[in-house]
Simulated scan of single mutants.
Amino acid sequence: DHHLNPCYVCNSTGHNCRALPRMRPRIPDDVSPTEITGNGLSETEPPVLEEEMEEPIGVEDTDFVLYVSAVETERCRRGLTVAYASHCQQESALDRPVAGHANFCPGELSTKYRDLPSVLSTVKHEMLHALGFSVSLFAFYRDDNGEPLTERRPDTGNPPLDEELQIHKWSSRVVKNITRKNWMIRGGFMERTFHMIVTPRVVKEVRNHFNCSTLEGAELEDQGGDGTALTHWEKRVFENEAMTGTHTQNSVFSRISFAMM
Rank of each mutant, 00 (worst) to 15 (best):
T81D: 08
G225N: 00
V59L: 15
G225E: 00
H195R: 15
D63Y: 08
Q166K: 13
L120E: 14
M23L: 14
P106N: 01
N16I: 08
N211T: 15
T248R: 14
N182S: 08
C17K: 08
E234M: 06
L120M: 14
L161D: 10
S257Y: 02
M196N: 06
R18T: 12
Q249N: 09
D61E: 12
R24Y: 02
G225D: 00
M23Y: 06
D143E: 02
H232Y: 08
S42M: 07
V48H: 10
W233M: 04
H125S: 02
I178L: 11
V48F: 09
E60F: 01
A83G: 05
W170V: 07
K235R: 13
F138E: 07
L116A: 06
G58H: 13
G188V: 00
V237R: 08
L128K: 00
P33S: 13
E147I: 07
M23E: 05
P47L: 06
H195I: 04
I27H: 07
R255D: 13
F194V: 00
D1Y: 10
D1Q: 10
I167E: 14
R77A: 13
R180Y: 13
S110L: 04
D226P: 07
R186T: 04
G245T: 04
G157Q: 14
R152T: 09
Y67H: 11
T34H: 13
K124M: 13
A139N: 05
F64W: 04
Y8L: 14
Y141I: 04
C88V: 14
K181F: 05
M53K: 13
L128N: 02
S92P: 01
K112M: 06
S121T: 15
E151H: 09
L116V: 06
R207Y: 02
S110N: 06
R173E: 11
V31K: 09
L230I: 01
P28V: 00
F253H: 03
R26D: 08
V252Q: 08
D143C: 02
F189C: 00
I256V: 10
P21W: 09
R153W: 01
P106D: 03
I178N: 09
G79H: 01
D222Y: 06
R180A: 14
Y113T: 15
G58S: 12
V71T: 11
A218Q: 03
Y113C: 09
M260P: 00
G79L: 03
E205R: 10
P160E: 03
L149G: 07
G40V: 15
V206H: 02
I256K: 04
P148W: 03
E35S: 06
T248W: 12
Y67M: 12
V203R: 11
P106Q: 03
G157P: 15
C88S: 10
A19T: 12
T122I: 10
T62F: 11
S118V: 07
L161R: 15
E54A: 13
V82K: 08
T62N: 12
C105Y: 03
H87Y: 15
G132I: 04
I197C: 08
Y141P: 01
E216T: 01
S121W: 11
F194Y: 03
V174Q: 01
R26G: 04
T44R: 04
V206R: 02
T37I: 11
S172W: 03
A99M: 14
M190E: 15
K176Q: 10
V71F: 09
C76M: 08
F238R: 01
P148I: 03
D162H: 00
C88W: 04
G245Y: 02
